[in-house]
Design a binder for these strands. Structure first.
Length: 479
RNA sequence: GGCCUCAUAGUAUAACGGUUAGUACAUCGGGUUUUCAUCCCGACAAUAGGAGUUCGACUCUCCUUGAGGUCACCA
């Protein structure tokens, strides 16, 4: 039997770091065989529904490369894939339960229920609705919630991550199946949908672990085999021990895209947060993840989100793409990350800049702050020269002298390429008897006025002779 | 509170019941003709506590502690 997994978010907002893993793992699992992943939108809570959230979710999955095989946009044989469009299906299943005496319309008002609950709290006994079942129940009709009539008993099951589980009757209750607005609850809808759609592995956060016995009871009453259960531990916020959520400032996944994080790095990081293949490998491509993923190596404890490691991984991926796929491949990803003043520069020039600066990038958006001096003359900041720790010993007239020597040397240079420039700089070192730290820092700063920059000969070669000499002259005149 | 889950360095993790408890990030040092970064080398740093089983426990059992989840007409 082929593996069928699903990602079933409710359209209440963006997908963030804390919950995207429940899309990644189903994707990996389904694709390591001939299986498929379904995207199902669980939009039965009309109050929390957010316009546009579905598109946000789709955008996120597409960016990460987690294509779904069935669902919105792509369709499929088991649609519709929006729960709001499947009301009839839920009602049909609900009627089966009514017919078999396993569901009842519940006329009890929320106020009465609250009262029962309060009584139990006072008596310090656990509140179970099944102890308060109304004696006379009406015919089920719109406007009245439908409840499951549970049969308290023991349940044992296996969770692929948590192991063998067991629960007693004390957790079984008459859960609501259909709300008074006619929409099903999650508890009921997901069971029906997973069964109808042939889902074999239900992967979801551990918060559903406690509800599983109630689901087991429902599967039983519905005459359905239950799928395999895979409980995914929470991702914890950087601070405290709470699971990472929007309230903790969990950023949306696509916000990282805008910040210049590569999809490959994001997928790599998230997949390995709470899972590993037992080796010491750190960098995984998507196909390696698909190949190596396994349920039994998912961690059973929560994992803390660590942005520093994400950024490190992103730097690794930037370099990996550059060296393995070439400068053009990386350049193709940099659209929108250059400083505004680079707008008029040619692709060829920007590609050259990228080629000498890429190994300094943690994110693509670092380009914005790190490359400005390649596109326009930097603002003169003589203090930066005077206060530099390597240049402190030099007087201003010494600096001027060195700059003039440099200008003369570079003006006479026959060919303006990195190697020739390096040779000239080396000769200059010999001629002046200065240490690289002094001479190179002076030239580097004079030409960039940036706290750091790529290797000097590369920077000069890309800046070009005219620009380099003009900037050196400006500093020599003003110092 | 009831029920459930989890527990190796700051973080993420590795370790058929037998290793000097490994690796990566972070941190701190050092190296590569300037800086920043890359790359390389090195250092710091952990089995929550207590019983038990065993020749031997990170690993199995129990207790304690700590953390989390769940007890909705939300998912």
């Amino acid at each position: 039997m082929n593996i069928v997994t699903r990602f079933a978010p409710s359209p209440t907002g963006y997908i963030h770091i804390g919950n995207v893993r429940s899309a990644i793992y189903p994707y990996l699992l389904a694709h390591q065989s001939e299986g498929e992943m379904i995207l199902r939108i669980e939009d039965t809570d009309r109050a929390r529904y957010v316009e546009g959230a579905t598109e946000l979710i789709e955008d996120t999955l597409e960016w990460l490369g987690l294509n779904w095989d069935e669902g919105p946009i792509v369709g499929g044989p088991n649609g519709p894939y929006f729960q709001s469009e499947r009301k009839d299906i839920y009602h049909a299943w609900a009627r089966k339960l009514i017919a078999s005496g396993r569901a009842y319309a519940d006329p009890t008002t929320p106020e009465e229920i609250a009262k029962y609950r309060e009584e139990c709290n006072k008596a310090k006994t656990p509140f179970l609705y099944r102890n308060y079942r109304p004696e006379n129940t009406p015919e089920w009709e719109p406007g009245i919630p439908l409840r499951f009539k549970t049969e308290p008993k023991e349940y044992s099951w296996h969770d692929e991550v948590m192991g063998d589980m067991h629960a007693g009757p004390e957790v079984l209750d008459d859960i609501i199946l259909i709300k008074k607005d006619g929409y099903p609850t999650y508890n009921f809808a997901h069971i029906v949908d997973d069964a109808e759609m042939g889902v074999t592995h239900v992967m979801r956060g551990v918060e559903y672990l406690s509800s599983t016995p109630n689901y087991l009871a429902l599967y039983e009453a519905l005459g359905l085999e239950h799928p395999k259960f895979v409980s995914l531990p929470h991702i914890l916020a950087p601070n405290g021990n709470k699971k990472l959520g929007k309230r903790d400032g969990a950023k949306s996944v696509t916000e990282y895209r805008d910040d210049g994080v590569l999809a490959e790095a994001m997928l790599n990081y998230l997949a390995c947060l709470g899972w590993n293949d037992g080796t010491e490998q750190e960098i995984y491509t998507k196909s390696e993840l698909i190949q190596k993923f396994s349920l039994d190596r998912i961690q059973s404890s929560g994992a803390r989100y660590d942005e520093t490691k994400l950024l490190w991984l992103n730097g690794q991926w930037i370099r990996k793409i550059f060296t393995e796929q070439g400068a053009d491949a990386l350049y193709a990803r940099t659209d929108g990350f250059w400083p505004d003043i680079a707008a008029s520069a040619t692709d060829k020039y920007k590609l050259q800049v990228l080629s000498i600066i890429y190994d300094r990038l943690k994110t693509l958006s670092d380009l914005r702050d790190m490359t400005a001096y390649f596109f326009s003359d930097p603002r003169l900041d003589l203090d930066m020269l005077i206060n530099n720790k390597y240049l402190k010993k030099l007087s201003e007239s010494e600096m001027e002298g060195l700059l003039k020597l440099t200008i003369a040397k570079l003006t006479d240079l026959e060919s303006w390429d990195a190697d020739s420039i390096q040779n000239a700089l080396n000769e200059l070192l010999a001629d002046t008897g200065k240490k690289p730290a002094e001479l190179f820092s002076l030239i580097r700063i004079a030409v960039s006025f940036a706290p750091f920059s790529p290797a000097l000969h590369l920077t000069l070669s890309i800046l070009g002779r005219d620009t380099s000499l003009a900037r050196l002259n400006t500093v020599a005149r003003n110092i």
